[in-house]
Computed example of a mutant assay.
Amino acid sequence: MSEARFRTLRWRVSARRHPSAFLLVAQLLSLAIYPLFDDMAAGRVVFGAIGVLVLALAVWVVNRSPAFNWIAWALAGPAFVLSMLAVALDNETLLVVSSALEAALYFYAAGSLIAYMMSDHRVTTDELYAAGATFTLLAWGFAYAFLVCQAWYPDSFTGAVEPERPRKWLELLFLSFTNLSAVGLGDVIPLGAAARVLVMFEQFAGVGYVAVVVSRLIGLTMLRHGSR
């Protein structure tokens, strides 16, 4: 067997064993790419392309979990089409609808990964990757929910820089990460009632995720190493 073929087979085996790792890596790499295009006119095109990749990976991860795959496809398909149309036509309405569908897909994928991690009493390597991927899915899901909220209720969010303008995607994603992780950095602030309710829901989700899912994985990992 040639070395190239061996590497290909090893790559396929890794992909089948650790699908959550690919989703986690894609999410983290996108974080590194976003700042390069945030202030450019072509930024929305880049964000759309990255979103398509993450959508596909999210559906793939759902397929490996106990969840219903057809629900993920029912959300991902329209989200993909509307996202591309929103970029091509520069249409804010289509962008808001696609963002709502993407938020629903990310929440569904996060729920499916949580069900996957809670389905047995042993901790695999892929479940550890799934723990990180679930956190990013929740962060992205709430960021898209913030984007929809901002479109439906203008002036929902303000910030330290140019407080009168709507917040950019990266700013809302930053708010989502700081809120979900309970860091509490306050340079992006929810002002409207709907925005504050969403922020409170995310705080509840973040605390619950750490208290139930992460603590369970840590406990099972310690038990496994203790039994050895």
Rank of each mutant, 00 (worst) to 15 (best):
T8A: 10
W11N: 15
R12P: 00
A15W: 13
R16P: 10
R16F: 12
H18M: 13
Y34N: 03
F47Q: 06
L53K: 04
A56K: 03
L57M: 11
V62M: 12
R64L: 12
P66T: 12
F68S: 14
F68T: 15
I71C: 14
A72T: 01
A74T: 05
A74N: 09
L75T: 06
G77H: 06
S83Y: 05
S83V: 06
A86F: 05
A86N: 02
L89T: 06
D90S: 12
E92R: 15
T93E: 05
L95R: 15
V96I: 04
S99A: 12
S99V: 07
A100N: 05
E102F: 07
E102A: 11
F107S: 09
Y108T: 03
A109L: 09
A109H: 11
A110D: 01
H121Q: 01
L128M: 14
G132S: 02
G132M: 00
A145F: 05
F146E: 03
T158V: 06
E162M: 10
E171Q: 15
E171L: 08
L172Q: 08
F174T: 03
L180P: 07
L185W: 10
G192N: 14
R196L: 11
L198C: 03
F201R: 04
E202T: 07
E202P: 01
Q203S: 11
G206T: 02
V210C: 07
V213H: 08
V213D: 08
L220K: 14
H225F: 14
